[in-house]
Amino acid sequence: MKLSLKTSAIKSFGKTDENDIKSLEKVLNIRFPNDYKDFLLKTNGGSILNDNTNEIVLKNIGKIINIDILYGVNTENSCFDIEYWTKKYIDDLFEKTVIIGDSLQNGFIVMICDGNNDGVYYYDDSYYFDESNDENNVYIISNNFTEFLDMIVKR
């Protein structure tokens, strides 16, 4: 599936290439879905325009998050790198999970790529929401990356 992305809502972190993405997949022992790889090749992540288009409702708890950053590969600032954040929180993440961004509420956007629970989720590691606790602080956003991107970027 090819992504046809209008990138005006994303301030790109520059360029990456297929070799960098394959290297990251190897380091993290994960295989990214094609739509996510296509996104990285087109934008390498970036900061999201802070307006109402960056709002996402977490349906299972009825709360709103605001997408702030979608991380990239080998960016000039490690704070914007998928590898940096995923390795930093690796012990707290489910297997085959990668941190792909963050929100203004200080939580992370994560993607699970295990074949059973695939999708994009909100990881409320700071317990911003009253509903979050040690047993439950991960909330589904979408079943795939394209669906997630459709929520925050006008095509």
Rank of each mutant, 00 (worst) to 15 (best):
residue 27 V to Q: 12
residue 29 N to M: 11
residue 30 I to P: 05
residue 38 D to W: 09
residue 40 L to A: 13
residue 41 L to Y: 14
residue 42 K to T: 12
residue 43 T to R: 02
residue 44 N to Y: 08
residue 47 S to F: 03
residue 48 I to A: 01
residue 50 N to W: 05
residue 52 N to L: 09
residue 52 N to M: 06
residue 53 T to L: 10
residue 53 T to S: 09
residue 54 N to E: 03
residue 55 E to R: 05
residue 55 E to C: 11
residue 56 I to C: 11
residue 59 K to Y: 09
residue 60 N to W: 07
residue 62 G to L: 07
residue 63 K to E: 06
residue 63 K to D: 04
residue 64 I to L: 04
residue 65 I to L: 03
residue 66 N to D: 06
residue 68 D to R: 09
residue 70 L to G: 01
residue 75 T to C: 03
residue 76 E to L: 13
residue 77 N to F: 07
residue 78 S to K: 11
residue 80 F to V: 12
residue 81 D to Q: 05
residue 82 I to T: 00
residue 84 Y to P: 08
residue 84 Y to A: 07
residue 84 Y to E: 12
residue 85 W to I: 10
residue 87 K to F: 04
residue 91 D to M: 13
residue 92 D to H: 15
residue 92 D to A: 15
residue 93 L to F: 08
residue 96 K to M: 13
residue 97 T to N: 04
residue 98 V to M: 03
residue 98 V to E: 07
residue 98 V to P: 04
residue 98 V to R: 07
residue 99 I to E: 02
residue 99 I to C: 09
residue 100 I to T: 00
residue 100 I to R: 00
residue 102 D to M: 11
residue 103 S to L: 01
residue 104 L to F: 13
residue 106 N to V: 15
residue 106 N to L: 15
residue 110 V to I: 07
residue 110 V to C: 10
residue 113 C to F: 15
